[in-house]
Every structure is written in C-alpha cells, then in structure tokens.
Simulated assay, not measured.
Amino acid sequence: MLLRKIENQRLLYDGLDDNFYTEHIIEIDKITHLKFDTRNGQNLTELENKMDKVNFKKLINSFDGEIYKSNSIPELTSFKNQSGLNVYFKESEKHLAIISFGEKQPMRYQIFLEGLFLKEKNA
C-alpha cells in the first residue's frame, strides 16, 4: 500500500473540554468524511505494529521531524507532535488520518489533523 499525502496540518479544535470529549468529523471532500472520537483514539504505535517498517518510516519522515517517538518509559511508548500532544490515527478503506489531541495547557484542549493520506494500491 502506498500513501499519498493530500492534506497537511490544520487545527480542528481549540477550546475547553466541554466539546473535546466527543465525536469529531474530518471533512475530506463534500461527500466523504472520517469520524473519530477523542475518548478512544488509536495510538500511532498500533499503526507502527501493523505496517511494514519501511512504509511506516516513510510516513513518519513525511512530517519533517514534527512527529517523534517518545519512549522514556518503554511500556508507555507513544508518538508526540511538536506541541507535545499524543498522536493517533484513524483509517478508512481509502484514507489514513494522523491526528494529535490532548490538553495543551490547563483547561485548554486542542485537536490537530497532522496529515491526511490517500491509500493507493501498489502498481
């Protein structure tokens, strides 16, 4: 599977927790949407274990160092973005979204779409 980046980082939410812990929608185009819920995000380490090493490394490198692996405590290994938010993923049959979210400052929550990819079949 090849991944082609079709959207770069954008802020999806910045506010209090009252609208943070709920379902959110990424609009891909006028008819295609990808839904995710901040209460049960899929950690990027799950995608790392699922993809082959070469393609996962290409995926992470496409963010130019803005997403990195944080493994100071091996059992709690996670990926972080440049703001220190945890990074997650959501996928559909045709798309892969890399999303970061969490508490940026006390009582201030943010959600970023780090990148949106179109899944393409190998030629």
Rank of each mutant, 00 (worst) to 15 (best):
I73W: 11
I67Q: 10
Y13M: 05
I73C: 01
N55E: 15
S100D: 04
G115T: 06
K90P: 00
L34V: 10
L3I: 08
K69F: 11
R10Q: 10
N19L: 09
L85K: 03
I25H: 12
N40P: 02
F20R: 00
L118F: 06
E93D: 10
G41D: 02
N8E: 14
R108L: 14
K50R: 10
S92F: 03
E114I: 10
R39H: 05
N71P: 09
L118A: 03
S62A: 10
K30S: 12
G15D: 00
N55A: 13
N122C: 05
L116E: 13
F20W: 00
N71Q: 14
N49K: 09
R108W: 03
D37F: 07
L44T: 01
Q105E: 14
D37Y: 09
I60G: 07
F20T: 01
R108N: 07
E46T: 01
F20I: 00
L2H: 11
F89M: 03
Q42Y: 07
F101R: 01
L96Q: 02
S72R: 04
L76A: 12
E7W: 11
S70K: 09
P106L: 15
L3R: 08
G41E: 02
K90A: 08
E75Y: 09
N61S: 13
L116F: 14
T45G: 13
R39F: 02
M51R: 12
V87G: 06
K121A: 13
D17C: 05
Y13V: 06
K80D: 14
I67D: 09
L34K: 07
N8L: 15
T45I: 14
I73G: 06
I31C: 10
G65T: 07
G15E: 02
S62T: 10
I60D: 06
V54F: 15
D37R: 13
D37N: 14
M107T: 09
H33I: 13
N61P: 02
N86W: 08
F63Y: 11
L16F: 04
Q105M: 05
M1P: 13
N40F: 07
Y109M: 00
N40S: 08
G102Q: 07
Y13Q: 06
V87P: 04
Q82G: 05
A97K: 14
Q110D: 01
Q110V: 03
T32P: 08
G65A: 11
E93K: 13
K104C: 00
V54E: 15
F79N: 12
S100A: 08
Y68E: 15
G84W: 13
M1E: 08
E120K: 05
E103K: 00
N40T: 02
G84A: 08
I28F: 15
K30W: 09
T38E: 00
K104I: 02
S100W: 08
K53A: 07
F89T: 00
E93N: 10
R108E: 03
F117H: 06
N71D: 12
I60M: 12
E48M: 05
K80L: 15
L2P: 03
K69Y: 10
F79I: 05
L16Y: 07
K58N: 15
N49Q: 10
N49E: 06
G115K: 06
T77I: 07
L47T: 04
R4S: 04
F101M: 02
S83N: 08
G15P: 00
S92P: 05
D17V: 03
D17F: 15
S100P: 03
G84C: 10
D52G: 09
N8A: 15
A97M: 05
I60C: 13
S72N: 03
E66Y: 11
